[in-house]
Protein backbone atom coordinates (compact mmCIF):
# COMPACT_ATOMS: atom_id res chain seq x y z
CA UNK A 1 0.00 0.00 0.00
CA UNK A 2 2.81 2.43 0.90
CA UNK A 3 4.52 1.79 -2.43
CA UNK A 4 1.29 2.35 -4.36
CA UNK A 5 0.57 5.64 -2.59
CA UNK A 6 4.15 6.87 -3.03
CA UNK A 7 4.01 5.87 -6.70
CA UNK A 8 0.78 7.80 -7.20
CA UNK A 9 2.31 10.82 -5.46
CA UNK A 10 5.47 10.64 -7.55
CA UNK A 11 3.55 10.36 -10.84
CA UNK A 12 1.21 13.21 -9.89
CA UNK A 13 4.16 15.44 -9.00
CA UNK A 14 6.13 14.67 -12.14
CA UNK A 15 3.36 14.41 -14.76
CA UNK A 16 0.38 16.51 -13.63
CA UNK A 17 1.53 19.20 -11.18
CA UNK A 18 4.21 20.77 -13.47
CA UNK A 19 1.64 21.49 -16.18
CA UNK A 20 -0.72 23.15 -13.68
CA UNK A 21 2.06 25.13 -12.04
CA UNK A 22 3.55 26.28 -15.36
CA UNK A 23 0.18 27.62 -16.57
CA UNK A 24 -0.77 29.33 -13.31
CA UNK A 25 -0.47 33.12 -13.07
CA UNK A 26 -0.32 33.48 -9.28
CA UNK A 27 3.46 32.75 -9.23
CA UNK A 28 3.92 36.20 -10.80
CA UNK A 29 2.87 37.66 -7.44
CA UNK A 30 5.18 35.44 -5.34
CA UNK A 31 8.09 34.40 -7.56
CA UNK A 32 10.50 33.51 -4.75
CA UNK A 33 7.98 31.21 -3.04
CA UNK A 34 7.07 29.74 -6.44
CA UNK A 35 10.71 28.79 -7.05
CA UNK A 36 10.78 27.14 -3.61
CA UNK A 37 7.59 25.25 -4.51
CA UNK A 38 9.10 24.03 -7.81
CA UNK A 39 12.11 22.79 -5.84
CA UNK A 40 9.88 21.03 -3.31
CA UNK A 41 7.81 19.40 -6.09
CA UNK A 42 10.92 18.14 -7.86
CA UNK A 43 12.66 16.92 -4.72
CA UNK A 44 9.51 15.20 -3.41
CA UNK A 45 9.03 13.44 -6.75
CA UNK A 46 12.58 12.09 -6.48
CA UNK A 47 12.04 11.00 -2.87
CA UNK A 48 8.74 9.33 -3.83
CA UNK A 49 10.51 7.40 -6.59
CA UNK A 50 13.15 6.26 -4.09
CA UNK A 51 10.36 5.32 -1.67
CA UNK A 52 8.63 3.15 -4.27
CA UNK A 53 11.88 1.39 -5.13
CA UNK A 54 12.56 0.61 -1.45
CA UNK A 55 9.03 -0.19 -0.26
CA UNK A 56 7.58 -2.17 -3.17
CA UNK A 57 9.84 -5.27 -2.95
CA UNK A 58 9.45 -5.44 0.83
CA UNK A 59 5.65 -5.14 0.67
CA UNK A 60 5.30 -7.64 -2.16
CA UNK A 61 7.50 -10.28 -0.54
CA UNK A 62 5.82 -9.80 2.84
CA UNK A 63 2.32 -10.11 1.32
CA UNK A 64 3.38 -13.22 -0.59
CA UNK A 65 4.88 -14.69 2.58
CA UNK A 66 8.18 -15.34 0.79
CA UNK A 67 11.00 -17.12 2.54
CA UNK A 68 14.05 -15.41 3.99
CA UNK A 69 16.36 -15.77 0.93
CA UNK A 70 13.80 -14.15 -1.38
CA UNK A 71 13.19 -11.27 1.03
CA UNK A 72 16.94 -10.70 1.34
CA UNK A 73 17.47 -10.73 -2.42
CA UNK A 74 14.57 -8.30 -2.91
CA UNK A 75 16.00 -5.93 -0.30
CA UNK A 76 19.47 -5.95 -1.82
CA UNK A 77 18.01 -5.37 -5.28
CA UNK A 78 15.93 -2.47 -3.97
CA UNK A 79 18.96 -0.85 -2.30
CA UNK A 80 20.98 -1.22 -5.51
CA UNK A 81 18.32 0.47 -7.66
CA UNK A 82 17.92 3.29 -5.12
CA UNK A 83 21.70 3.82 -5.12
CA UNK A 84 21.67 3.87 -8.92
CA UNK A 85 19.05 6.65 -8.97
CA UNK A 86 21.04 8.74 -6.49
CA UNK A 87 24.32 8.21 -8.36
CA UNK A 88 22.69 9.15 -11.67
CA UNK A 89 21.41 12.40 -10.17
CA UNK A 90 24.80 13.24 -8.66
CA UNK A 91 26.69 12.45 -11.87
CA UNK A 92 24.29 14.67 -13.80
CA UNK A 93 24.72 17.50 -11.29
CA UNK A 94 28.51 17.29 -11.34
CA UNK A 95 28.56 17.12 -15.15
CA UNK A 96 26.27 20.13 -15.60
CA UNK A 97 28.16 22.29 -13.13
CA UNK A 98 31.56 21.31 -14.55
CA UNK A 99 30.53 22.05 -18.16
CA UNK A 100 28.86 25.32 -17.15
CA UNK A 101 31.96 26.40 -15.25
CA UNK A 102 34.23 25.67 -18.22
CA UNK A 103 31.96 27.51 -20.64
CA UNK A 104 31.70 30.52 -18.33
CA UNK A 105 35.48 30.64 -17.75
CA UNK A 106 36.15 30.76 -21.50
CA UNK A 107 33.35 33.28 -22.02
CA UNK A 108 34.72 35.48 -19.23
CA UNK A 109 38.22 35.35 -20.73
CA UNK A 110 36.90 36.48 -24.12
CA UNK A 111 34.70 39.34 -22.83
CA UNK A 112 37.65 40.58 -20.74
CA UNK A 113 39.78 40.77 -23.91
CA UNK A 114 37.01 42.36 -26.02
CA UNK A 115 36.01 44.91 -23.37
CA UNK A 116 35.86 48.54 -24.48
CA UNK A 117 36.78 49.86 -21.05
CA UNK A 118 36.85 53.47 -22.23
CA UNK A 119 33.09 53.35 -22.95
CA UNK A 120 31.89 52.64 -19.44
CA UNK A 121 34.26 54.23 -16.92
CA UNK A 122 31.46 56.40 -15.52
CA UNK A 123 28.89 53.58 -15.32
CA UNK A 124 30.39 52.15 -12.18
CA UNK A 125 30.64 48.45 -11.49
CA UNK A 126 34.09 46.85 -11.82
CA UNK A 127 32.67 43.67 -13.31
CA UNK A 128 30.98 45.43 -16.26
CA UNK A 129 32.22 44.67 -19.78
CA UNK A 130 31.11 46.41 -22.96
CA UNK A 131 31.29 44.69 -26.36
CA UNK A 132 31.35 46.39 -29.76
CA UNK A 133 28.37 46.07 -32.03
CA UNK A 134 24.96 47.65 -32.55
CA UNK A 135 22.86 44.61 -31.62
CA UNK A 136 21.55 45.42 -28.12
CA UNK A 137 22.44 42.63 -25.75
CA UNK A 138 22.63 42.45 -21.95
CA UNK A 139 23.48 39.41 -19.87
CA UNK A 140 25.63 38.17 -17.02
CA UNK A 141 28.31 35.54 -16.67
CA UNK A 142 27.96 34.02 -13.18
CA UNK A 143 30.71 32.39 -11.17
CA UNK A 144 33.36 33.29 -8.63
CA UNK A 145 34.52 36.15 -10.87
CA UNK A 146 31.20 37.26 -12.34
CA UNK A 147 30.74 39.69 -15.22
CA UNK A 148 27.87 41.80 -16.49
CA UNK A 149 28.08 42.22 -20.25
CA UNK A 150 26.42 44.95 -22.32
CA UNK A 151 26.81 45.55 -26.03
CA UNK A 152 27.52 49.04 -27.33
CA UNK A 153 24.00 48.86 -28.82
CA UNK A 154 22.50 48.86 -25.32
CA UNK A 155 24.28 52.11 -24.46
CA UNK A 156 22.90 53.61 -27.67
CA UNK A 157 19.23 52.68 -27.21
CA UNK A 158 18.93 53.11 -23.43
CA UNK A 159 19.38 56.21 -21.32
CA UNK A 160 21.44 56.23 -18.14
CA UNK A 161 18.53 55.35 -15.82
CA UNK A 162 17.51 52.41 -18.00
CA UNK A 163 21.09 51.14 -18.14
CA UNK A 164 21.17 51.29 -14.32
CA UNK A 165 17.96 49.22 -14.27
CA UNK A 166 19.52 46.57 -16.50
CA UNK A 167 22.67 46.52 -14.36
CA UNK A 168 20.62 46.15 -11.15
CA UNK A 169 18.70 43.27 -12.75
CA UNK A 170 21.84 41.41 -13.83
CA UNK A 171 23.67 42.05 -10.54
CA UNK A 172 20.70 40.43 -8.76
CA UNK A 173 21.14 37.23 -10.79
CA UNK A 174 24.80 37.24 -9.75
CA UNK A 175 24.34 38.15 -6.08
CA UNK A 176 21.52 35.65 -5.52
CA UNK A 177 23.45 32.88 -7.30
CA UNK A 178 20.52 32.14 -9.63
CA UNK A 179 22.80 29.96 -11.73
CA UNK A 180 22.93 27.39 -8.92
CA UNK A 181 19.13 27.07 -9.02
CA UNK A 182 19.15 26.69 -12.81
CA UNK A 183 21.99 24.19 -12.66
CA UNK A 184 20.10 21.96 -10.23
CA UNK A 185 16.96 21.95 -12.42
CA UNK A 186 19.06 21.32 -15.53
CA UNK A 187 20.82 18.43 -13.80
CA UNK A 188 17.48 16.91 -12.78
CA UNK A 189 16.12 17.35 -16.33
CA UNK A 190 19.13 15.54 -17.80
CA UNK A 191 19.00 12.73 -15.24
CA UNK A 192 15.41 11.82 -16.13
CA UNK A 193 15.17 9.20 -18.91
CA UNK A 194 14.56 10.92 -22.27
CA UNK A 195 10.91 9.92 -22.91
CA UNK A 196 9.86 11.23 -19.50
CA UNK A 197 11.74 14.53 -19.63
CA UNK A 198 9.84 17.79 -19.49
CA UNK A 199 11.17 21.28 -20.08
CA UNK A 200 8.28 22.83 -18.11
CA UNK A 201 10.10 23.20 -14.76
CA UNK A 202 13.24 24.54 -16.48
CA UNK A 203 11.42 27.23 -18.45
CA UNK A 204 9.06 28.16 -15.61
CA UNK A 205 11.88 28.56 -13.08
CA UNK A 206 13.93 30.55 -15.58
CA UNK A 207 11.07 33.03 -15.98
CA UNK A 208 10.53 33.22 -12.20
CA UNK A 209 14.22 34.05 -11.67
CA UNK A 210 13.87 36.86 -14.22
CA UNK A 211 10.87 38.16 -12.23
CA UNK A 212 12.87 38.02 -8.98
CA UNK A 213 15.67 40.03 -10.61
CA UNK A 214 13.05 42.48 -11.96
CA UNK A 215 11.64 42.97 -8.46
CA UNK A 216 15.02 43.83 -6.95
CA UNK A 217 15.86 46.16 -9.85
CA UNK A 218 12.50 47.93 -9.58
CA UNK A 219 13.04 48.53 -5.86
CA UNK A 220 16.39 50.12 -6.65
CA UNK A 221 15.57 52.25 -9.70
CA UNK A 222 11.77 52.18 -10.07
CA UNK A 223 9.51 50.23 -12.42
CA UNK A 224 9.39 52.76 -15.26
CA UNK A 225 13.05 52.63 -16.40
CA UNK A 226 13.13 48.84 -16.08
CA UNK A 227 9.95 48.48 -18.11
CA UNK A 228 11.27 50.85 -20.77
CA UNK A 229 14.57 48.94 -20.92
CA UNK A 230 12.81 45.62 -21.30
CA UNK A 231 10.58 46.98 -24.08
CA UNK A 232 13.40 48.65 -25.97
CA UNK A 233 15.78 45.71 -25.75
CA UNK A 234 13.26 43.12 -26.88
CA UNK A 235 12.02 45.39 -29.70
CA UNK A 236 15.57 45.88 -30.83
CA UNK A 237 16.24 42.16 -31.06
CA UNK A 238 13.81 41.63 -33.89
CA UNK A 239 13.48 37.87 -33.74
CA UNK A 240 12.55 37.45 -30.09
CA UNK A 241 8.90 36.80 -30.95
CA UNK A 242 9.87 33.76 -33.04
CA UNK A 243 12.09 32.29 -30.36
CA UNK A 244 11.44 28.64 -29.73
CA UNK A 245 11.67 28.97 -25.96
CA UNK A 246 9.02 31.66 -25.86
CA UNK A 247 6.91 31.24 -28.98
CA UNK A 248 4.15 33.72 -28.13
CA UNK A 249 6.31 36.26 -26.33
CA UNK A 250 4.44 35.19 -23.19
CA UNK A 251 7.39 35.48 -20.83
CA UNK A 252 8.09 39.03 -21.91
CA UNK A 253 4.41 39.99 -21.70
CA UNK A 254 4.13 38.58 -18.19
CA UNK A 255 7.22 40.47 -17.05
CA UNK A 256 5.98 43.71 -18.59
CA UNK A 257 2.49 43.27 -17.16
CA UNK A 258 3.71 42.90 -13.59
CA UNK A 259 6.01 45.91 -14.00
CA UNK A 260 2.92 47.89 -14.98
CA UNK A 261 1.13 47.15 -11.73
CA UNK A 262 1.75 49.34 -8.70
CA UNK A 263 2.56 46.52 -6.29
CA UNK A 264 2.86 42.95 -7.40
CA UNK A 265 4.14 41.15 -4.34
CA UNK A 266 1.75 39.37 -2.00
CA UNK A 267 3.03 38.52 1.48
CA UNK A 268 0.08 36.25 2.30
CA UNK A 269 0.56 34.28 -0.92
CA UNK A 270 4.30 33.98 -0.27
CA UNK A 271 3.72 32.58 3.22
CA UNK A 272 0.99 30.20 2.00
CA UNK A 273 3.09 28.82 -0.86
CA UNK A 274 6.19 28.44 1.31
CA UNK A 275 4.17 26.49 3.90
CA UNK A 276 2.73 24.32 1.10
CA UNK A 277 6.24 23.62 -0.19
CA UNK A 278 7.46 22.60 3.27
CA UNK A 279 4.36 20.44 3.78
CA UNK A 280 4.86 18.71 0.45
CA UNK A 281 8.39 17.82 1.45
CA UNK A 282 7.63 16.70 5.02
CA UNK A 283 4.11 15.21 5.07
CA UNK A 284 4.57 12.22 2.73
CA UNK A 285 7.56 11.17 4.80
CA UNK A 286 5.65 11.42 8.08
CA UNK A 287 2.37 9.91 6.86
CA UNK A 288 3.65 7.20 4.53
CA UNK A 289 7.33 6.44 5.00
CA UNK A 290 7.67 6.40 8.79
CA UNK A 291 4.86 3.82 9.46
CA UNK A 292 6.20 1.62 6.65
CA UNK A 293 9.74 1.89 8.00
CA UNK A 294 8.43 0.78 11.44
CA UNK A 295 6.85 -2.34 9.98
CA UNK A 296 9.75 -3.08 7.65
CA UNK A 297 12.42 -2.78 10.35
CA UNK A 298 10.57 -5.21 12.62
CA UNK A 299 11.05 -7.82 9.94
CA UNK A 300 14.58 -6.62 8.92
CA UNK A 301 16.13 -9.68 7.32
CA UNK A 302 19.80 -8.63 7.21
CA UNK A 303 20.32 -8.23 10.96
Amino acid sequence: MTALLLGALGLTLSLIVPGILANARWPDRAPVAAVVLWQAVTLTAVLAALGVVLAAPEEVTRAAGSGRPVVEAALIGALAVAALIIVRLLVSLIGVSRRSRARRARHRMLVDLLDRAEQHRELGPDNLRVLDGPLPLAYCVPGREPRVVLSHGVLQVLDREQVDAVLAHEQTHLRHRHEVVMESFTAFYRAVPRPLRSRLPLDAVHLLLEMIADDVARRRVGAAPLRAALERLSDAVPLTEDAAADPRGDARRRRLARLGESHTGSVALTVLVTVAAAGLLVLPTVILVVPWLDRALEAWPLS
Binding site: V96, S100, R103, H107, Y139, V149, S151, H169, T186, L202
Partner: peptide
Protein backbone atom coordinates in the same frame (compact mmCIF):
# COMPACT_ATOMS: atom_id res chain seq x y z
CA UNK B 1 32.63 39.56 -30.74
CA UNK B 2 30.09 37.79 -32.95
CA UNK B 3 31.08 34.37 -31.64
CA UNK B 4 30.92 35.56 -28.01
CA UNK B 5 27.43 36.98 -28.58
CA UNK B 6 26.34 33.78 -30.26
CA UNK B 7 27.64 31.78 -27.30
CA UNK B 8 25.83 34.08 -24.87
CA UNK B 9 22.47 33.72 -26.55
CA UNK B 10 22.59 30.11 -27.65
CA UNK B 11 20.61 27.82 -25.41
CA UNK B 12 20.59 24.06 -25.34
CA UNK B 13 19.85 21.55 -22.61
CA UNK B 14 23.43 21.69 -21.49
CA UNK B 15 23.86 25.39 -21.66
CA UNK B 16 20.72 26.59 -19.95
CA UNK B 17 22.51 26.98 -16.68
CA UNK B 18 25.58 28.74 -17.97
CA UNK B 19 24.51 32.32 -18.59
CA UNK B 20 21.56 34.50 -17.76
CA UNK B 21 20.06 36.94 -20.21
CA UNK B 22 18.00 40.05 -19.97
CA UNK B 23 15.81 39.75 -23.06
CA UNK B 24 15.17 36.03 -23.22
CA UNK B 25 16.46 33.27 -25.39
CA UNK B 26 16.92 33.07 -29.13
Amino acid sequence: TASVMLDALTSSDDQDAALAYFVGRL
